[in-house]
């Protein structure tokens, strides 16, 4: 069942037409990636879903009710961790629940922090953490929110190659046990293929959905997948799609 649906969405900033025709959906406990070149309008899609702007045309709906321009229905993880430096790890994780007006369960938060490999860092401040650790806190913060859909905007693109691969595997392992619906933005084909159930390929600006494909690989997935024949075959296909 589709939870989040975008139906024929268009958006311009003045004379700058960014999104022409975006139709996509995310199902319950599904992992969907939006893949597109830089500047194609991926973050704009999130700003529309988040209600920061209203689309010029089309409807965004969650579980059947229209969301256009209304806020607070999604959980979010930005590209930069955006942790508050005056809050400890635990207090940062609490923030998303606080904003949603929910009293968070301390034990559950500590469990999440443990599962992120950050046991012992509950009361540390962000500037004591490495880049990868900060991103893990940021993801856990988005998991700790009550909303059932998480939007991740290129969360690993600022990390080095090794840390990124580690983080992708970690993300999958957490998600296997904590299945919320995920909409994931990336400009990295490997990342989209490795993580997702489905990939939405966007065209250059003004963006429209160019291709939608289902990723057939079974879960749980391991690193070996990245060099397997079917993986490389799909990667070639997407690559030529983005080129042509």
């Amino acid at each position: 069942m589709a939870r989040l649906t975008l139906d024929h969405i268009a958006k311009s900033y003045g004379s700058n037409e960014v999104l022409r025709n975006i139709t996509l959906s995310v199902g319950d406990a599904e992992f969907v990636s939006i893949l597109g070149p830089s500047g194609s309008g991926k973050s704009t899609i999130f700003q529309l879903i988040g209600g920061l702007y209203t689309p010029d045309a089309g409807t965004i709906s969650l579980d059947g009710s229209v969301l256009n321009g209304s806020r607070g229905h999604i959980s979010y993880m930005p590209q930069s961790p955006a942790l508050f430096p005056w809050r400890t790890v635990l207090q940062n994780v609490r923030l998303s629940a606080e904003v949603a007006g929910i009293k968070p369960d301390e034990e559950q938060m500590k469990e999440l922090i443990r599962s992120a490999g950050l046991a012992g860092y509950e009361h540390a401040y962000p500037d004591e953490l490495s880049g990868g650790m900060k991103q893990r806190v940021s993801f856990i913060r988005s998991l700790n929110a009550p909303q059932q859909i998480i939007c991740l905007d290129e969360p690993f693109s600022a990390l080095d190659e090794f840390t990124r691969l580690e983080m992708q595997q970690w993300l999958l392992s957490i998600w296997e046990t904590n299945r919320k619906s995920i909409l994931f933005i990336t400009h990295n084909i490997d990342e989209a293929l490795f993580l997702s159930d489905r990939i939405i390929v966007l065209s250059d600006k003004p963006a429209a959905v160019k291709k939608e494909l289902t990723v057939p690989f079974a879960r749980p997935r391991t690193e070996d997948l990245l060099l397997s024949g079917p993986f490389l075959q799909l990667k070639r296909e997407i690559y030529s799609e983005l080129r042509g």
């Binding site: 988040g50 920061l52 607070g72 930005p78 930069s80 508050f84 998303s96 606080e98 939007c151």
Partner: peptide, 24 residues
Amino acid sequence: RDMLHYMKMIGASRRQIFWKLQWP
């Protein structure tokens, strides 16, 4: 700006943005 954008994206009210982010 990143923190502000994060707060807006998760639907924080103006009041929450002020007291949880801008004031501290």
